[in-house]
Nucleic acid binder design. Structure first.
Lengths: 336, 336
DNA sequence: GTTACGGATGATTTCGATTACATCAGCGCG
DNA sequence: CGCGCTGATGTAATCGAAATCATCCGTAAC
């Protein structure tokens, strides 16, 4: 592998000039630039990344951690992140934490070792060591949270208004005439689930149906949707509608409905959350809350770059628009 | 950020000793090690990654490129890759090429700049500049291909036997009594599609049904499954079974079947490929070929590490086991 | 015609770790 | 008692590029 020295020698200039050709071409005479570029082409020179990074203290890399990359919601957000990062000349270091705190800490270490310029995390936990960093650096900490909204972490974030979205779902169901509504939440440790549940409760109270709510906790997976919906459907006062906090759980719930010998939406209405690509290809097509997954990905990158470029002075927490997409899985409850 | 110098001073030793504490602890006296570790803890020292990488010429990073991370098949393979890489102390640089050759080249550049120790690519194209590298380094080139099998590229790979898998699918359909079988392939530029098609053709000929095959090209997306299946179902001699080269296309085909007022599997049997998590939650549950996505991910990492550690002298191309999973979407053709 | 200035380029230091080589103390052995 | 060896540690070169400071040359101003 040729180095900048080799190029300099070959082009008959100093290494400083070669370096300038890349980083500040307008400081170099056109003829000299040509000579250097020819030498570069001739030798097949590529600047060594580690050397550059050591000198500049920049890596042009963004570390992105995600609880589970095989989840279509997250993988779509990641795609948006990758797209925006790539457009800005950054590349993406992927960390799949598998919901494990230990792994989150390990990835946090990478940030402290300067293996990446910043961190985007899509979970809801901020590793302790990074919390210290936030305390020290304030709104200039190069850490951004996506999807969740945990104001007390003190990091920039991009997310939807989960509370409002959940309320809209409930309004839709109550509007159709449902009374007994089952709700399968995600783990309540995540603010995202807590917010949605708050929205559910607020709407229920507004409609005077708080007592008819049947809340049960899931973990966002298909299997837990199947399990919890089965449980809900076996109750004597079976809900006529089920609201799942993820489309995956709704897929499981749909299977539970079928196994119970019921038909969606005739017997039981079903609502999901996220609007992953598969939601509209289920039978029946799934009513769900559409999250702007691409936009969230782009936005978290924008927020992080603002911080890295020193453009951010205050803490930015951005709420992006969601949309209730009513499809075929919700209808009026059975006449009873 | 404290440096190794600061730690050395604080601990009253030389930088060499500090370095040894991390990279070769048994060369250091226990007491000295303690002193150093205390200084490290006191100052909150983390070795600078760029400096280390510059000196050692290693990055402990693996670049992984994928045509589309939001595809559940790929995201699952990636999860396997991340898992195996992490277990071996490597981290993953993710590149989403969006099927674009230009992007593939850009990521190839990262390898040449030594931003990663090796490359795992899940598409079927090897950028030109890397082909040169392969030509020069032979089986020691730190590049591994996953999922596809293109022997002429000369890179290590892990994949299933696509030809055999496709034959099994066709045998299953012919065994059920189907004659007119529609096949929706992927882009034929990929060896993977070509291999499967070869398997389809071989089986058709073996069963004397080559003329009844109805092959049409898709692009692995739900939308193309919907489109191409609609086209197949509109033909006068409608196929009684459709074999899609991906589960996503099968989801689209399922929708096409519904829209045509038909019922799967009563009127039309359907087979997918990959066995993504959602396949068994479709209605009807999808018959498909299960690919060992986790194992592919683990295996490509193993192959790459073998090369990086100098353990590989010959070109390794590994075939992993697949499995035809018969579920509810295939049945005997209608009596007609 | 000297001075001053600015544009182009070169010489050299620097980033922070690793590592080959040097040093030094202690010990066993003849 | 001195030689040589081994084990622990220090000294200093090195990785490859970026950036500071120095230098050189030509030109415009007085």
């Amino acid at each position: 592998m040729p180095t900048i020295q080799d190029v300099a020698r070959d082009a008959g200039v100093s290494t400083a000039t070669v370096s300038r050709v890349f980083s500040a071409p307008d400081l170099v005479l056109e003829g000299t630039r040509q000579k250097v570029m020819e030498a570069v082409a001739r030798l097949g020179y590529e600047p060594n990344f580690a050397a550059k990074s050591l000198r500049t203290l920049r890596t042009e890399k963004i570390l992105v951690t995600v609880p589970d990359i095989s989840n279509p919601f997250f993988s779509r957000v990641i795609r948006g992140v990758e797209e925006a990062a790539h457009a800005a000349g950054y590349s993406v270091l992927l960390g799949d934490t598998r919901h494990q705190e230990e792994r989150e800490e390990q990835y946090a270490t990478m940030l402290r070792r300067k293996e990446a310029d910043g961190l985007i995390f899509l979970g809801h936990r901020l590793p302790d060591t990074l919390a210290d960093m936030v305390a020290a650096m304030g709104p200039r900490t190069p850490i951004v949270n996506g999807c969740e909204f945990a104001p007390d972490l003190g990091v920039a974030s991009a997310h939807i208004d989960n509370t409002a979205a959940a309320q809209e779902v409930m309004d839709h169901l109550y509007g159709l005439g449902h009374v007994r509504v089952g709700v399968i939440t995600g783990p309540l440790a995540s603010p995202l689930s807590a917010d949605r549940l708050a929205g559910v409760r607020a709407a229920a109270e507004r409609h005077g149906q708080a007592d008819a709510l049947q809340v049960i906790t899931g973990d966002f997976t298909i299997e837990s949707g199947l399990l919890q919906a089965t449980e809900l459907l076996a109750r004597p006062l079976r809900p006529t509608a089920i609201f799942c906090f993820s489309d995956e759980m709704a897929m499981g719930a749909l299977e539970a409905i079928r196994r119970a010998g019921l038909v969606c939406p005739r017997d039981v209405s079903l609502v999901g959350f996220d609007d992953i690509r598969f939601a509209e290809y289920l039978a029946p097509q799934l009513t769900t809350v559409s999250q702007p997954m691409d936009a969230i990905g782009h936005e978290v990158v924008r927020l992080l770059l603002d911080i890295l470029k020193g453009r951010a002075t205050t803490l930015q927490q951005v709420t992006l628009p969601h949309r209730l997409v009513v499809r075929a899985s919700t209808a009026a409850p059975p006449a009873a």
